[in-house]
Design a protein around this nucleic acid. Structure first.
Length: 312
DNA sequence: TAATCGTGGTC
DNA sequence: TGACCAAGATT
């Protein structure tokens, strides 16, 4: 709703009366744009392999690329295969997660590595259903790994793709709050028939959303399908539905959990209650946050008033 | 379905 | 300057 008015594309790029966007007219320009403008991200290089792709997908859940890059490099160097990670205590994954946020992802990635080692011979599965069965892998991540790592044909619906489709095809500024069946049908309908083209399309639409068709200030002048964008052709109508609920953070349990876990991460061994009490002075909320961390398996009680990152 | 779950950068 | 946003999953 507060997005800046998009930059109009140069007149030469806009066909006078372009037809509405459809699958046939979108694949070629979007994939060509991707070929020319894709970022050189480490998990896109051949040497990353399926495990590198999976690690990146876990880290990128709700976390910007710029913050993932250094941690990704450390992880892949330290744990080049799933079995390497599975061989260490889950607490080491939590510690190495650093400040990426949502540390349960570290725990789930460790659990996924364990499952891959035990059930899949140490190889990241290439099958969507097998991927979906892994801890921390939902519909998006399963499709992303199958598509990016193995070239499979899947609709990959992340926040970028949802926004691109909402604008280019549906003609609205933003997609709904939660992914709808209609969005899935649309993504499925737009998926190229050819497997390799579909995999490229998945990465290309994501990249287009990340670099050009951004949430706040889309740069239509650089968009390969601006001439056929339904939202643009409609005159950039503003989002009407209810505003997305804000993610307030200051003073919440999440903030307290984060501060408590930071104490554990930065310590080399077990930590005393006293050390944790020092970072938050409201005792009820502090206790609730710590209980939550223990319940989630992110913190392990060692003895009365002593805690550590989980060894199992 | 809606709430919960971190952290930091941007405008 | 505070609200919004960032390759979601789980319950």
């Amino acid at each position: 709703m507060t997005a800046t008015t998009p930059t109009p594309p140069p007149a030469t790029d806009a066909a006078p009366s372009a037809p509405a966007a459809d699958a046939a007219t979108l694949h070629t320009p979007v994939n060509a744009w991707f070929a020319a403008h894709a970022r050189d991200l480490p998990w896109r290089r051949p040497e990353a392999g399926p495990w590198g792709v999976m690690v990146s997908e876990f880290m990128l859940q709700q976390t910007p690329v710029s913050r993932v890059l250094p941690v990704y490099e450390q992880w892949l160097k330290r744990w080049p295969r799933p079995a390497d990670l599975a061989a260490e205590p889950p607490g080491e994954a939590v510690r190495a997660w650093g400040r990426l946020g949502y540390p349960r992802r570290a725990l789930r990635l460790h659990a996924a590595a364990t499952a891959i080692t035990e059930r899949h011979g140490g190889e990241v599965p290439d099958d969507h259903a097998a991927l979906l069965a892994l801890p921390g892998v939902g519909e998006y991540t399963a499709a992303a790994v199958a598509s990016f790592a193995y070239g499979r044909r899947h609709a990959v619906l992340d926040t970028n793709v949802r926004r691109v489709l909402a604008r280019v095809v549906t003609g609205v500024q933003y997609p709904p709050n939660a992914t709808t069946a209609a969005e899935r049908r649309l993504a499925q309908r737009l998926l190229p028939d050819d497997e390799a083209t579909a995999a490229r399309w998945a990465a290309a639409t994501m990249e287009l959303g990340a670099l050009v068709c951004t949430a706040r200030t889309p740069d239509c002048g650089r968009c390969p399908v601006a001439a056929r964008c339904a939202w643009r052709l409609a005159g950039f109508p503003a989002h009407d539905g209810p505003p997305r609920r804000g993610q307030t953070y200051a003073g919440t349990d999440r903030q307290v959990r984060g501060m408590l876990l930071a104490v554990l991460r930065e310590a080399t061994g077990p930590v005393t209650q006293e050390q944790m009490d020092a970072v938050w002075d409201e005792p009820v909320q502090r206790a609730r946050a710590l209980d939550g961390l223990v319940a989630d398996g992110l913190v392990e009680p060692v003895a009365q008033g002593v805690y550590r990152l989980p060894l199992e």
